[in-house]
Simulated scan of single mutants.
Amino acid sequence: MNIILNDIYQFILYIVVFILIFYVSEKTARKKWNIVRKPEAEEVDSLHKWGKRILWIFFFVTWVFFSSWLKSLLIIMVIGLFDAYMQWKSGEKEYIITLIGLVIFIVFITFGYSFHILSE
């Protein structure tokens, strides 16, 4: 029982650390590049909206029917890159925050599985 609690505390600490890293990185980037925070995530156009929907449906189908975590992570990365590309194409600076979040997500997953924090 004590081992399980230790693992849970380690997992929570791991998540909190990465949330803080993202928060500080986002605040720094917004200040440095003068990126205005939008009240909610909005799509650039209908291609962006439908592209994200189709990619998310593909992600859930892959996760539920094939249970492949690697393919699912790759799809999430493609969704992030597609989102950043569409934001960049429209001339928004928000793509910088999206790319920072994507890099932090990749590092989060890589460290988590390397040190067996996220693995079973």
Results as ranks from 00 to 15, higher is better:
1 M>I: 04
2 N>M: 13
2 N>K: 14
3 I>N: 13
4 I>H: 12
5 L>F: 10
5 L>V: 01
9 Y>E: 02
9 Y>C: 11
9 Y>V: 02
11 F>T: 00
11 F>M: 00
12 I>V: 02
12 I>C: 05
13 L>T: 04
14 Y>H: 06
14 Y>R: 07
16 V>W: 15
17 V>N: 03
18 F>L: 01
18 F>N: 06
18 F>D: 02
20 L>P: 07
23 Y>L: 11
23 Y>A: 14
24 V>A: 10
24 V>C: 10
25 S>W: 03
25 S>L: 07
27 K>M: 07
27 K>Y: 09
28 T>P: 05
29 A>H: 05
32 K>H: 02
32 K>C: 00
33 W>Y: 15
34 N>D: 14
36 V>M: 08
37 R>V: 00
37 R>C: 01
39 P>Q: 05
39 P>T: 01
40 E>C: 06
40 E>S: 13
40 E>V: 11
41 A>L: 09
41 A>M: 06
42 E>Q: 11
42 E>F: 05
44 V>K: 14
45 D>R: 14
46 S>E: 06
47 L>P: 03
48 H>A: 10
49 K>P: 04
49 K>M: 06
50 W>S: 02
51 G>I: 08
51 G>W: 13
53 R>K: 11
54 I>R: 05
55 L>D: 01
57 I>H: 11
57 I>M: 12
57 I>R: 14
58 F>W: 08
59 F>T: 01
59 F>L: 11
59 F>C: 01
60 F>R: 01
61 V>C: 12
61 V>Y: 14
61 V>S: 10
62 T>H: 06
62 T>W: 08
63 W>F: 09
63 W>P: 00
63 W>L: 09
64 V>Y: 15
64 V>G: 04
65 F>D: 03
66 F>R: 07
66 F>C: 07
67 S>W: 10
67 S>C: 08
69 W>E: 06
70 L>A: 05
70 L>T: 01
74 L>H: 04
75 I>L: 13
76 I>T: 04
77 M>P: 03
78 V>K: 07
78 V>R: 10
78 V>A: 15
79 I>P: 09
79 I>Y: 09
80 G>W: 03
81 L>H: 06
82 F>S: 02
82 F>Y: 10
82 F>V: 01
82 F>L: 03
86 M>T: 05
87 Q>E: 13
88 W>Y: 15
90 S>H: 13
90 S>E: 10
91 G>N: 12
93 K>R: 14
94 E>G: 14
95 Y>P: 09
97 I>G: 06
98 T>S: 11
98 T>Y: 13
98 T>I: 14
99 L>F: 10
100 I>A: 06
100 I>P: 10
101 G>D: 03
102 L>F: 07
102 L>V: 04
102 L>R: 07
102 L>E: 08
106 I>L: 14
106 I>N: 09
107 V>S: 03
107 V>H: 03
108 F>K: 01
111 F>S: 05
114 S>W: 15
114 S>H: 15
114 S>K: 15
114 S>N: 15
115 F>L: 05
120 E>A: 13
120 E>K: 14
